[in-house]
Amino acid sequence: MTELLQIENLTKKFDNQVILDGINLSIQKGEVLVLVGSSGCGKSTLLRCINGLEEIQNGTVKLEGKEVKYGDKNLPLIRQKIGMVFQSYELFPHLNVIDNLMLAPMKVQKRNKEEERKEAIELLRTVGLEEKAEQFPRQLSGGQKQRVAILRTLLMHPDILLFDEVTAALDPEMVREVLDVMLNLAKQGRTMIIVTHEMQFAKAVADRIVFIDDGKIAEEATPEQFFEQPKTERAKQFLNVFSFEKIKVNGI
């Protein structure tokens, strides 16, 4: 296995508050990494740093040896290799689905329009949205929008995909359709970093779980280890939040 992404000693401060504190992390090609932790622990900020959306105070993020650096003029080039999907979909409201998909490949990578269109339609078909190609984002449900947003990053042929709580804004019945798309991507051997609160999904999709607490990596483990026998007290507390004791006995 080859190392794709390398994070060394990453430190992010906001004003004087430390958000991320000396993160060291590397991801192999084809690996699916799930970041978990309570809200405000810094996991979303970590994703944003990997995409160069945040200025960092110390450390480096490297994709295949090339540094991802906030404000750097080569950043757009490296970003083409790093796909990111946001919680709030962020489709472009003034463009229909197909144009949302084709904008970046056409303008950024200057690819052939006809081939691009074919590829976009093909991708839409794989997630069952080919008949929505000419519709505008506001005509789609949240789950449909998020699937289109995922395809939009796929069309750039990225090396790694970042998912930032992509199901958090969805109605419960739409969560599954988005998670299924992600499971499929994992099966195809894509490299992915996922921030999520869906613990069942995390268990199913992850090769490795990274538990972040208070801006530091508190625990790194396989899903089995992490969910069955968490090592740290903080991780136990965190996982307890997701389980309920039965309070009614015999239907009383």
Binding site: L77, R79, G83, L103, T153
Partner: peptide, 12 residues
């Protein structure tokens, strides 16, 4: 965040 999503696609 609209801008960020466009940036993340590699746009200048």
């Amino acid at each position: 965040i609209q801008e960020e999503s466009a940036l993340s696609l590699g746009m200048t």
